[in-house]
């Protein structure tokens, strides 16, 4: 299972902060994962693909083309606002 973590406004769009999904074999990168999510939820996929969103795999910040495996934790990070 791939664990998906949604932060900030992305959790509102996704309807929750965490999901576990079985990613099909053709899902090799975060881009592929977003496309797969889009088959069920186009609005969420568009939000996840926004250029302001950053991605983390197993707590490391990576690019959208980073490879993922079926046991990874993938986090979707919208623009931050600390301080």
């Amino acid at each position: 299972m791939t664990r998906l973590l949604y932060f900030g406004k992305l959790a509102d769009i996704a309807g929750g902060r965490m999901r576990e999904i079985p990613a099909p074999d053709h899902v090799e990168t975060i881009s592929d994962l977003i496309a797969h999510i889009g088959e069920a939820d186009a609005v969420l996929a568009a939000a996840l693909a926004d250029e302001t969103v950053r991605y983390a795999v197993n707590e490391e910040i990576v690019s959208r083309e980073a490879a993922i495996s079926n046991t990874d934790e993938v986090a979707f990070l919208p623009p931050v606002s600390g301080g």
Binding site: F7, G8, P78, V80, S81, G82
Partner: peptide, 14 residues
């Protein structure tokens, strides 16, 4: 540090 905390640290504020 404050400028970067506001824009680069991973916090989300509602």
């Amino acid at each position: 540090l404050m400028d970067y905390l506001k824009t680069e640290a991973y916090f989300w504020k509602k």
